[in-house]
Design a binder for these strands. Structure first.
Lengths: 245, 245
DNA sequence: TCCGAAAGTTGAACACGTTCAAATCGGAGT
DNA sequence: ACTCCGATTTGAACGTGTTCAACTTTCGGA
């Protein structure tokens, strides 16, 4: 869980006078990490609301004000939590991508691992989605700030698609990673609202949806489905122009 | 805008001792309305965060505590705002449903009117979605509490589908209203995040998506599309069992 | 070795959402 | 007219996220 190489994410230790931007002064980075660690643990233990900034600061052994020196708001700490889980997901996905199984099997495995990683934090995820859904938020999956995280996520599907031999419409192939990312987004929203024990409903949806997607993808190369594919992709192009990754 | 007949919604004036449930004691209802009116106006003027409970109470001429006698939280007032706009949308949709134009034209008109109604509150809608997205929230479109609002919304699409003569798979016809509701939900999410001036991107999406949907619906009765339709509906059935309206 | 500026840190203070014990009101029953 | 009793109303108080002016530490260069 914990010890994953920390990719230098965009979050800044310097809210004031952000010009210096040196790699990481040992002291500052240490404090920052202490805060993040405490926040993640407390969020996981007590949820979002119950975990107060004062508690996080106390647990990390710093003052409240100091936490705000490194993070502009409580929400920013949530995004650290998210990054932690995304790294975990990424690590678990690696062997799946390397495996030689079919497109559908690997897609299902990727989605299931995502659910698995988040499962212990279902309650927290509800709050998280509330924060991520508001447009201005840096945690929003559509925001400028999360471009990196978005690319990281789509890169998974890029590798999946690139390494699959399933025949499909070439235009679709080019766009499939983004479509899968969107599908995953929808799945997450569904999962968060899924109150069945262990979110078993969501798992059932995956079981059904993945073969369906596989079928659709395969069908895309058939002549009769061309208009469906083409027009769908045209819609996607309006929705999400290809230039903007 | 303002003077729409007030359908007796579920919100309660009685947080404490809610058993009596009499129609509406003149006094209480008057206070309640004053608070709602002030809240809606201030939300519209200054947004969600900027509008404080103290300001709402002051504007309505009551004490802060009194506002909490009628509404359990600030969020509850947001749902009043939402209801107001939904009523407005409903009113505008009425003539559209009665019009004899094609399925697609009416669907597009319905969606466009929705955008029109919300357009002045784009910023506010961002916050609103953040609140609605969290599972426990009574404002969540999937929550128990908003069953009524959900039914009201789907009823629009029910009437649209029932009064359309477009040929389509009968199974699909039975489920189409819910699918359209889901599509509308997606559109709203997209619109909220659409930063193009006047949200013109969203309008373009409607222009493209509606004919596409019309095409898909029409195609559903063709033999070659049967598996696509059937399996899609099976997925929907898992996702959202028909029994649970 | 010392200085000064930058980085880091502090805790009190502020504004806000929310709670609650107490005060007030209004009308039904006598 | 009087008395209850529930419905309504109040405002002070609490806990929270956030800000900020002041303080301390660090460290490169004279």
């Amino acid at each position: 869980m914990g010890s994953v190489t920390h990719t230098d994410n965009g979050s800044s230790p310097a809210a004031p006078a952000a010009r210096g931007r040196a790699a990481d002064t040992s002291r500052g980075e240490q404090t920052r990490q202490a805060i993040v660690t405490s926040a993640i643990r407390l969020f996981g233990e007590a949820g979002y609301e119950k975990t107060t900034m004062r508690a996080i600061a106390a647990d990390a052994g710093v003052s409240v004000g100091n936490a705000y020196y490194y993070f502009p708001a409580k929400e920013a700490l949530v995004s650290e939590f998210y990054l932690e889980l995304q790294r975990e997901h990424l690590a678990r996905v690696e062997p799946i991508l390397s495996s030689g199984t079919s497109f559908g099997d690997r897609l299902a495995a990727i989605l299931r691992e995502g659910i698995e990683v988040w499962a212990p934090h279902h309650a927290f995820a509800g709050r998280f989605i509330g924060i991520a859904a508001v447009p201005g938020s840096p945690v929003s999956p559509f925001s400028e700030e999360s471009t990196r995280a978005r690319e990281l996520a789509t890169s998974i599907f890029h590798r999946l698609v690139d390494s699959t031999e399933t025949k499909m419409d070439p235009q679709l192939r080019a766009r499939l990673p983004q479509l899968l990312w969107l599908a995953q987004l929808g799945l997450v929203v569904y999962w968060v609202h899924d109150t069945t024990p262990g979110q078993r409903r969501t798992r059932a949806v995956v079981d059904l949806a993945v073969p369906y997607l596989e079928y659709l993808v395969g069908a895309s190369r058939m002549k009769i489905f061309k208009p469906l594919t083409t027009r769908g992709l045209a819609l996607l192009e309006t929705l999400w122009p290809h230039a903007a990754r």
